[in-house]
Simulated assay, not measured.
Amino acid sequence: MNRLYHFPLSPFCRKVRLVLAEKKIEVELVEEKYWEPSTEFLRRNPAGKVPVLKIDGMTLSDSQAICEYLEETMPDPALLPRDPAQRAEVRRLVAWFDDKFHHDVTVNLVHERVHKKLMRSGYPDGRAMKSGATNVKFHIKYMHWLLDHRRWLAGDQMTLADFAAAAQLSCLDYISDVDWSLSAPVKDWYAKVKSRPAFRSILADQIFGFPQPAHYADLDF
């Protein structure tokens, strides 16, 4: 049995879960408190980070390395285009959401509101949350611009870039930190992504002490 060691409100774990589900790869989900890593978990990934995927007799870590492995070994349905230029654009946007969006927004909101409480590592930093709330508006504007020129974020087809973005936004949406009224195209795009069967398990996530908002699993918001 394939096994994914994950934390439900990690956008990187969610990205991998979306790829696995889209490619119809069955996997057992094992929740891991990465901030309290066991010796056994550190053997799987000395960096002490999730996600970690056990598949094909191997143990893989780093969300992008995992996604690229899945794409190369199980290319249907394709989440990376064949054209090198288009493939580079997908990878650029994946890096944008995994790095810039995550540090500009997700760390300042999800980490401050949720992870700090779960980890018992102090109180939310008001300045960080204010920064995250400001930064998310910039990123939604950028996504709006992309969707004004494209059907999906990276082009005419849904790609890994859409999953990387949706993984980040779904974590924010779980704590009601996305103002969907800022952009109708972005709201419509997210509705398309979260309506996919691959999104079902993510919409069913429950974080102890943080109940889902009423709209979170509503496909029509």
Results as ranks from 00 to 15, higher is better:
Thr39Gly: 11
Val30Gly: 03
Leu147Lys: 08
Tyr216Glu: 01
Leu182Gly: 04
Ser61Lys: 14
Ala198Leu: 01
Asp76His: 06
Asp205Gly: 00
Lys23Gln: 01
Ala78Gln: 05
Tyr34Met: 09
Trp180Ala: 09
Glu32Cys: 07
Ser61Pro: 10
Ser63Gln: 05
Leu169Ala: 05
Tyr5Gly: 12
Ala166Leu: 12
Ser195Lys: 09
Trp96Glu: 11
Cys67Val: 09
Trp180Phe: 12
Tyr216Gln: 00
Phe7Arg: 06
Trp35Tyr: 09
Leu118Ile: 13
Lys23Leu: 00
Glu112Met: 11
Ala166Phe: 11
Gly57Arg: 03
Leu42Ser: 07
Gly48Ile: 02
Arg150Ile: 03
Phe210Trp: 05
Arg87Leu: 07
Arg113Tyr: 13
Ala166Ile: 09
Val105Glu: 10
Asp62Cys: 13
Leu4Asn: 01
Ser181Ile: 08
Arg17Cys: 07
Gly126Cys: 06
Met129Pro: 13
Leu42Ile: 09
Asp98Glu: 14
Arg196Leu: 03
Val52Gln: 07
Pro77Phe: 04
Thr73Asp: 04
Gly126Leu: 15
Gln206Tyr: 01
Phe7His: 09
Leu93Arg: 03
Tyr142His: 15
Glu72His: 12
Leu219Trp: 02
Ile25Phe: 01
Lys15Met: 09
Leu219Gly: 00
Tyr69Asp: 06
Leu146Met: 11
Asp99Gly: 14
Asp188Pro: 05
Arg43Ser: 09
Val136Gly: 08
Lys194Met: 04
Ala47Thr: 13
Gly126Glu: 10
Thr159Cys: 04
Leu160Gly: 07
Ala85Ile: 12
Ala191His: 10
Ile207Gln: 08
Asp104Tyr: 05
Ala165Lys: 14
Ile66Ser: 00
Asp162Val: 06
His215Pro: 00
Ser121Leu: 14
Gly57Ser: 03
Leu160Asp: 10
Arg120Glu: 13
Arg91Thr: 13
Ala214Arg: 12
Leu42Cys: 11
Phe138Arg: 15
Arg82Lys: 14
Ala65Ser: 15
Ala128Met: 15
Gln212Ser: 05
